[in-house]
Structure formats: C-alpha cells, structure tokens
Design a protein around this nucleic acid. Sequence first.
DNA 1: TATTGATTGAGAAACTTTCGCATTACGGAT
DNA 2: ATCCGTAATGCGAAAGTTTCTCAATCAATA
Lengths: 151, 151
Amino acid sequence: MVAYTPSAMKAELHERGWRMTPQRETILNTFQNVAKGEHLSAEELCELLKEEGAPISLSTIYRNLKLMSRMGILRELELAEGQKRYEINQPSPHHHHHLICVRCNKTIEFKNDSVLKAGAKMADKSGYHLLDCQLLIHAVCPACQRSIMPV
Amino acid sequence: MVAYTPSAMKAELHERGWRMTPQRETILNTFQNVAKGEHLSAEELCELLKEEGAPISLSTIYRNLKLMSRMGILRELELAEGQKRYEINQPSPHHHHHLICVRCNKTIEFKNDSVLKAGAKMADKSGYHLLDCQLLIHAVCPACQRSIMPV
DNA sequence: TATTGATTGAGAAACTTTCGCATTACGGAT
DNA sequence: ATCCGTAATGCGAAAGTTTCTCAATCAATA
C-alpha cells in the first residue's frame, strides 16, 4: 500500500508488458487531488473529467478502475447500495475504515492501525500479497434508530 | 449479532408492524442449514430452493435478503465480482472475516475477535447499533503471484 | 521512423437488482 | 371461527451498472 506517482505506476505496468497512457495518468492524478475521504463512482469520475475538459470514455474508466484496484493503487469500496466507489489507497497514517448506516448510508471514516496490522499479518501468514484491508461496519445510526418506519 | 429462530424473527417483525411469511421462514432455515462458510447469491438461493421443491420468486428473495441483512440476521458480502453474497450472521465464536484473491477470487475465512471487538467498540462509541462487522482483505494469492499474465 | 500489439472510444449486450401492479394471505379485531 | 385491512408475493417490465466487441489509435521498442 504505497502512494503512487505516475512514473512508479508506469514502471510497474512495464514490468508486465503493459503501457502508461494519458488516460491512466489523468485518473491517477484525479484521485490524488480529490478531497480526502471523497469516494468516486465510475460515473462520477466520468462526469468530473468531462467538466474539467479532459473527458475519458466510461469503458476506459471502468477498465482502469479495475486495473488500478488490482495493482493496489486504488481501493474499491462497496459503501452505499448499487455502485462501487473508489479512492486512492493510502498507507498507514491516512489509511481508514468505514462505518455505514444501512438505512440512510451515512458513513463515518475512522482509523485503527491495529486492525490494519491484523489484516496485514493475516495476509502475510497465508502468503498473500496485500493490496487493501478495510474494516466494514454495517449499523444503524442514531437518527435512524429513532425513526420508526423504513427497514 | 444473534442467531435467530423463526419465532424470534417473527417477534422482531411484529414490533415494526410487519409479518412473518412461509417464504421468510424458508429463507432463514435455508441459511441456517447450509454448510458453514458457504455464501449464496440471490440467484443461487433461488435455484437451490427450486431444486428442493420450495421455490420462491426472485423478487421476493431480493426483498428478503435486503430486509434480513438490515435486521442483522444475514450479512451481505461483496466477495467476488458482480454479485452480492449472503450468509447467516453468527456471533463471536463463529464470526469470521474474509481474505480474497482479486485475481482468482480464492477466499480464506479467518477469525479475529479483537478486530470484531474493535468494530463493535467503534460502532458503540458513535451511537450506532451494530449489525455486522467484517474485515475485508484484498490481496493476490501465492498461485496468482507466480502466474504472470492476468491483471 | 516503422512495427507490433496494448489501449481507447462508442455502442451493444449482459447481468444484477428494483419497480409496478394485480393477487394472495398474515394476523389483529370482531 | 370469520372478516378486514394491508403487508407481502409473483410476474414481467424497467432501471442501473458493468462488461464486451471491434475498428481505430497510439505507446514503446527496435
């Protein structure tokens, strides 16, 4: 879990016979410049890039979000219903987990290095190469506990 | 995170003005009888029930998987690509986390009560009512580290 | 600078999940 | 035990997200 520069990403792509492209660099830069704690969906990223005058096709965005997640550059989050969201995968001081209300989707980010370490240790013990480690807590927030109706 | 009986589920539904149905009981029983560590998708559950001669429509299955997850009876997992999977939500001695290879989807289940406790503590501290707590580790398994090609 | 093959873009297609609505049936009240 | 109001079901259609196809483009090496 390292913070990637475009050239580091390029080097790692070349190791496998793949290529760096302007689109990949744009996506990497966008995630590194976006506000901390902001998670983008594929669709949102596509819109954002369009607004910024550097549009990338949705197909390419999907392809690269998956690629960069599998390289460990991005982390793939399944927070709200129905769509995956992505954020830059940052090392320990910035690494965080998510506490989500299943009713209103209100999300709290929190840090816990001992949980991160436990995950890293487990991956290592099994011979797996760690990419991402996230504690996902599903719960009901105080406001939704008070409201009676929806599920 | 309690192991539910049909009557306990019924009582909790009634608290909110909802009803117990044969379909809901069938789904609950199915998840309690399925082999430990088996995660079913909506489609798979539908097929399984069809084979067992107690078919339930896919719509109803989707509705109840969501309902039961939000009640804390089931846990919703996003392990492999593209489909959600569900398993019964069991308390501490049986509670487990998942380590997944992002390339071949090979999954290892493991227990770690201190991680579970850290999650429960975090939810409590924020006034959230805990439903499920899962450490999700994305990694590359030993076999896929050796194979060069796919992502 | 030429070549090879990975990558992109656009639209079609595949899949998962949700919705709408008529029908059924749970469970509290009579 | 029966009736009633309404939650829940089943079916098919619809909505969304993600993947696929393929011709055109372009990165990287010689």
